[in-house]
Design a binder for these strands. Structure first.
Lengths: 222, 222
DNA sequence: TGGGTCATGAGCAGCCTGTTGATAGTAGAT
DNA sequence: ATCTACTATCAACAGGCTGCTCATGACCCA
């Protein structure tokens, strides 16, 4: 059973979401402000968090930042109409989706489903990800090309691992910087290109598994 | 099956609408005043609400406001002739359509249909939009025609995505420029035509899904 | 049926964007 | 402390996309 944390200061909203989530087979917990949410996340792991932006004590963005420092839990942000400018910032700090109030609870649950299925682990029972002759051995932190082990630098490995984990999904340079370098990293976009180049050179015949999306970023093809 | 809530204090009206709605395959519920409606909506989700303005206990506007605080359900407002000044206010609080009594039930159902098709999220739970053999995989940023992946340039993809998202809606060249190129772009209208042409060439048998509206712009047909 | 309006198609110049290799800075190891 | 290897930035290049123009063709209305 998947677990879901609702963070909102309005009780009515929490109730509505709880009802739908429980109906969809979630184990539900509630927090009424950002502080509360950070606290609860320290004790327990959730599969997904639904977080309001505007809250007393600690706002949603700060709470997400704090939680993300130690755990990687997907987040859907909620905000009132008229605060839509927050949307950009929301994605910037790595929210997985964003909804404007009032929203349809049905649609919220649909998006929760999409995010969770997207996060489904790509590795098999032995902890390996296999794409034809390209193998990523996660526990060993090693990569094999046609049976031969290739030496990757830490960043190259992280990059490959992240791409493979999100196979088939378009990843913008921003998102890659966010998730691999960290949300507080402000560097040059071109840096990614260089690492992609080096990584491709190390993948030999499988260099084309990493496709370029002009004007967007990169994608790993399974 | 879609669900519909009728809110009106006159039983006769409720009966007429129920009959038509059920004939059109709706699951119908009734409420006889605003309070009643708010109450029912707390327990159940509807796909659309038909709401009278003038009612005892709680009027239609207030009821819509209360419901909209937590849920985003489309509403068609009904009002008696002579209360037409309410129309503006109705749209202001977010009614999706407005009809004056006495109305034709047939027309009401037609408008219900329009609103529901407009609201229907274009993508399914996996994040794909499917129109016959034309598939747009949003997370992958990829487009398939009869199972074959086609390569689209960034602008072509954006254009197709935007058109598909607004399927069935006429889009002027101005609006397309605004929303795809950006509000600060001042370019030639004909540029769009060129991109439409290129896009159509890439869609093969589905090129006719993008219809030309002479003197206006373009439209995507589902 | 004919004229005018508007969309379409092809071609092309300019520019944007990704790739690449070189280089300087940084951190870790010996 | 020195060396090594990795990381980040930069500049130059090449290729392809973009957006404009013009000629042609389709459509609408009188």
């Amino acid at each position: 059973m998947s677990s879901l944390l609702i963070v909102d200061d309005e009780q009515k909203i929490r109730e509505v979401i709880r009802e739908y989530a429980e109906f969809n087979g979630f184990e539900v917990a509630e927090a009424e402000d950002g502080m509360d949410a950070v606290e609860i996340c320290r004790e327990k792991d959730f599969d997904i968090i639904v977080m309001d932006v505007m809250m007393p004590k600690l706002d949603g963005f700060s709470a997400v930042k704090a939680i993300r420092e130690t755990k990687d839990i997907p987040v859907i942000m909620l905000s009132a109409r008229g605060e839509e400018y927050d949307k950009l910032f929301g994605f910037e700090i790595g929210a997985d989706d964003y909804m404007v109030k009032p929203f349809s609870p049905k649609e919220l649950m649909a998006r929760v489903g999409v995010i969770l299925s997207r996060r489904a682990p790509a590795e098999d029972s032995s902890g390996k990800m296999v794409f034809d002759g390209l193998e990523i051995d996660i526990p060993a932190r090693a990569v094999c090309v046609d049976g031969e082990t290739v030496e990757l630098t830490p960043k190259e490995y992280e990059l490959l691992f992240y791409l493979a984990q999100n196979k088939g999904i378009a990843l913008s340079r921003d998102k890659l910087l966010q998730d691999i370098w960290g949300y507080d990293y402000f560097g040059d976009d071109r840096t990614i290109d260089t690492h992609i180049k080096n990584l491709r050179n190390n993948l030999g015949p499988y260099r084309d598994k990493i496709t370029t999306l002009r004007g967007v970023g990169y994608k790993f093809e399974a």
